[in-house]
Design a protein around this nucleic acid. Structure first.
Length: 884
RNA sequence: GGGCGCGUAGCUCAGCGGUAGAGCACUGCCUUCACACGGCAGGGGUCCCAAGUUCGAACCUUGGCGCGCCCA
């Protein structure tokens, strides 16, 4: 076997590894095109701890389709790639590894721990980037970035310092979402609210002056240890006399005021509500309205949510050190004993959980760094309103606006060791100096001031929000930045519009003056075949690498592309992947067939000249297909892109064109043969080009198998969609040919004519044009319709199958073989179908309002259709009469 | 409670004003010289329900019913 001969079986694994290595080594992903128009995508950076899952497979396939398409169209296509340092996730992974050796993070110095993380990153941080290569992603690996590398860290420091100087970053004492497992603050977005079965405890709070008592209810009784007030609604008459009096809390004996506040819901419980400003977001606001400043708010938890003494020292020692759960038990028991517990009811409650830790989040009063998101959100919203950035599908704009309009200050400090340490230093008096580095901070603080750096790090999303420009070199004014920013499209899941897209918009506009991309394409989630969300805990995840091993990366990519219909979730059924693997095999075999007849690499970019209808038709179909593909990409209709290419390659090219040219290839007419081989070679090349963005491996392999090439397919020119080559007369002739063959095949099949039987074909009432067409296409009709001789002479007497098509009737004598009843039934069925339609069309045309108001061309079309259908019905009835 | 979205063939989904399509599954025939991971032919749908707009509605409007997601 020569090295160009296509093997009988298609083995994706061999091809994939070979071509990916070749592309990467030859720099094919980033050809030097200094003068070309840029096309730029930044990858949503996967977590450095991660491994490839189906969501990545979808997201990156779509990006690669766009990048490869634009690269073939001659653009200077750049796909910026890299990973995200994933603060909490990475710290967890490394801590777990250390724990296996019996070492705790807190046993070592911070710098030492950071070294361990970097070591881990060197060792296993590349997992996902290796896996992206297996998918075929044509990223620019030569410029691979990491959110913690020097350049990106520099960008982070600059952004922090600048925002601080502009007053858009500030330090504040307020309640945060505290994760007691990881012992860090987290942002609102990292909290998920879950419905859980809880309880509602009703307790009696006596008045301090002994004049009575009131009842309060709570889902978290243990927080009464830090209660600072009881609130009632200002309009609630029941409590009017009590407002301003003091309550003496059970257990602590703390005396707290009864205040009025709109927050108290008269309908809920007794209408009186306990206020714990240090441990509840609503109560924090009520407390502030009641005049309690945050610094005075009582705190009863340590960083692990264990009970600590409040500043007034009133919590009994027995409670100190207890967990939230144990404290609740002990407290409820004590209340019950003293008779202060009235009743307990079951209730579904909404409880906050950390999305990574899975533990209940504690609202906790701490000093943290905040971004003034409200200010940054304004231009970010304006950019979408003005159309500078548009969402596809557009419906996500509503989600974006909805969130942006109600945006809260963004807590960006995290009590972790892994991440960008906040560039802020404090002097002995607690004054803060924000600067790019220690020296600059010292200059600000003045000589001699003893400075300590803030130990906290920044939220990972703070640095990934800079990704579209920090990866291109910002804050330096690099050529890359100049040419490739703003980027073109961001392709991502709708689930991180808030986390990431919104933040890139805010930071991008603030620091570059321009929105980071003109289009945000949001896709859905990849779900299991039954529609369930894939999750490790359910055990229903599908590993993309396993799929690639089994069916090939091209099949997986094709599936992802074909199923992506603008944001709808994808229910992934493995049979679908199998189907597209079959498509790859089909393409492989079509190329083998072509090669077997001496069809090879096309010599021209433009379509070869052609005289036969079939050749001119397939050229036109190719152009039409390319136009449809261009349209699909322009509208981000990935499903339509894949479907169009699939149907062209399989239905048009394999099932019709290759079958129609077999008689020519096997025939004697050398000129016709040469023309056909040239056209077939050209069309096959265009198919490889058109499929390359979706199926890069098999197409590149076949591209080279078909003959010597001046360049790899990855750099081939996209099909020139020049409408000049679409020839209507050839299209009409071949459409007629296909209809005729189809009609003959149908009747043969319905009449149970043995598949192999070759039967003569008689034609009556043929027009001159039909006769000419029959003459030109005899060999094809004979082969594909299993005919033997086509004659305009009258058919012999006796039973026959009759096919009505256009003005002519085609007769296949089946004397002695035909089942007359079956043929009568067939013709009757067809006649009735036509008559039913005639009736419906006549109904419409008979309505004067239709003629009056419908578009004229619709009326004309309808009239033409009526004429056709009537003629068809007449001929079918005539055929029935002849049958007797 | 606020917002978004979805109900079309057995399954998964396109279509979103001119009278219903695809893939898979299903049925029959074919070991036809590229391919059985194939070829040919075929069956299958009150387009969730109701009312309205329109010459005409799966498509637009309103209201139901069912399901999902996001934010409180």
């Amino acid at each position: 076997m020569t090295d160009r001969e296509i093997p009988k079986t298609f083995d994706p694994a061999d091809i994939e590894s070979r071509w990916y290595a070749h592309w990467e080594e030859s720099g094919a992903f980033r050809p030097d095109r200094p003068d070309a128009e840029p096309f730029t995508i930044v990858i949503p950076p996967p977590n450095v701890t991660g491994s490839l899952h189906m969501g990545h497979a979808l997201d990156n396939t779509l990006q690669d389709v766009l990048i490869r398409y634009q690269r073939m169209r001659g653009r200077d296509a750049l796909w910026v790639v890299g990973t995200d340092h994933a603060g909490i996730a990475t710290q967890m992974v490394v801590e777990r590894r250390l724990a296996a050796d019996g070492v705790k993070r807190t046993d070592m110095m911070r710098a030492e721990f950071e070294t361990k993380v970097w070591d881990w990153k060197e060792e296993s941080g590349g997992t996902i980037t290796t896996q992206l290569r297996r998918l075929g992603a044509s990223c620019d690996w030569s410029n691979e970035r990491f959110t913690m590398d020097d350049g990106l860290s520099k960008a982070v420091r600059k952004v922090f310092v600048d925002l601080y100087d502009k007053g858009l970053i500030y330090r504040d004492k307020r309640l945060v979402n505290w994760d007691p497992k990881f012992k860090t603050a987290i942002s609102d977005l990292e909290v998920e609210t879950r419905e859980v079965n809880g309880r509602f405890w009703h307790m009696t709070y006596p008045l301090a002056d002994g004049s009575g008592a009131l009842s309060v209810a709570t889902t978290r009784p243990e927080t009464m240890l830090a209660d600072m007030a009881v609130a009632v609604h200002p309009d609630d008459d029941r409590y009017r006399a009590m407002v301003g009096k003091m309550v003496k809390l059970p257990i602590t004996g703390r005396e707290i005021p009864i205040v009025t506040d709109e927050h108290a819901d008269p309908e809920l419980g007794s209408g009186a509500v306990k206020i714990t400003p240090g441990h509840d977001f609503n109560d924090f606001d009520v407390g502030k309205r009641a005049g309690i400043v945050p610094a005075d708010m009582l705190n009863m938890f340590d960083d692990e949510a264990r009970i600590v003494q409040t500043s007034d020292g009133l919590i009994p020692n027995a409670y100190l050190g207890l967990s939230r759960e144990d404290a609740r038990k002990a407290l409820v028991a004590e209340l019950e004993e003293t008779g202060a517990l009235e009743r307990v009811e079951d209730r579904t409650i909404q409880a906050p959980y950390g999305d990574r830790s899975g533990v209940v989040i504690e609202p906790w009063l701490t000093d943290q760094w905040y971004v003034d998101a409200e200010t940054l959100a304004k231009p970010a919203m304006a950019a979408v309103r003005s159309g500078e950035t548009k969402f596809v599908p557009a419906t996500w704009e509503k989600t974006y606006f909805n969130w942006m309009e109600n945006i809260q200050p963004w807590c960006i400090s995290r009590q972790l060791w892994w991440g960008h340490q906040i560039p802020a230093w404090y002097d002995a008096d607690g004054n803060v100096f924000v600067a790019d580095d220690a020296e600059a901070a010292q200059r600000k603080a003045g000589e001699g001031a003893a400075l300590t750096r803030d130990p906290d790090v920044l939220d990972t999303w703070f640095s990934s929000g800079l990704w579209p420009f920090s990866t291109l070199g910002w804050p330096d004014e690099t050529a890359m930045l100049e040419k490739h920013y703003p980027t073109d499209v961001l392709v991502t899941g709708f689930d991180i519009i808030f986390f990431w897209v919104a933040r890139m918009m805010m930071q991008g506009i603030e620091f570059t003056g321009k929105a980071p991309f003109h289009t945000v394409y949001c896709h859905g989630l990849v779900r299991a075949a039954d529609g369930q969300k894939m999750s490790k805990s359910k055990g229903n995840t599908v590993d993309p690498l396993g799929i690639i091993d089994k069916y090939g990366a091209d099949a997986l990519r094709f599936t992802m592309t074909a199923m992506e219909s603008q944001g709808r979730d994808i229910k992934l059924d493995e049979r679908r992947i199998e189907g597209y693997r079959n498509f790859a095999t089909k393409l492989w075999n079509a190329a083998r067939f072509a090669q077997g007849y001496g069809i090879g690499a096309s010599q021209t970019y433009a379509p070869p000249s052609a005289t036969s209808a079939v050749n001119r038709w397939i050229i036109g179909e190719t152009i039409r297909t390319a136009q449809a593909l261009d349209g699909a990409i322009a509208e981000y209709r990935f499903d339509s892109f894949a479907g169009t290419a699939y149907h062209f390659a399989w239905d048009r090219f394999c099932d019709w064109y290759l079958e129609l040219i077999k008689p020519v290839l096997q025939g004697e007419d050398e000129a016709a043969k040469e023309e056909t081989k040239a056209v077939a070679g050209w069309v096959l090349d265009q198919i490889l080009v058109m499929l390359h963005p979706v199926m890069p491996f098999i197409t590149e392999e076949l591209w080279h198998k078909m003959g010597p090439r001046p360049y790899d397919l990855i750099h081939a020119k996209w099909v020139a969609a020049d409408a000049h080559h679409v020839e209507e007369d050839a299209a009409r002739e071949v459409d007629w040919l296909i209809d005729l063959i189809g009609a003959i095949r149908s009747s043969r099949s319905e009449l149970n004519v043995p598949a192999g039987a070759k039967l003569p074909l008689h034609v009556r009432d043929a027009s001159a044009e039909t006769a000419a067409r029959l003459g030109r296409n005899t060999a094809m009709i004979e082969r594909l319709a299993r005919a033997e001789g086509i004659s305009t002479a009258a058919a012999p007497e006796g039973g026959s199958a009759q096919i009505v098509l256009g003005e002519a009737t085609y007769i296949i004598p089946l004397e002695g073989v035909i089942d007359l009843a079956a043929e009568r039934a067939r013709l009757t069925k067809n006649a009735e179908a036509a008559e039913k339609e005639i009736k419906s069309i006549e109904g419409r045309l008979g309505n004067p309002k239709f003629r009056e108001k419908a578009k004229p061309e619709v009326v004309v079309e309808t009239e033409e259709k009526l004429v056709e259908r009537k003629a068809e019905a007449e001929r079918l009835r005539a055929a029935l009469t002849r049958l007797g």
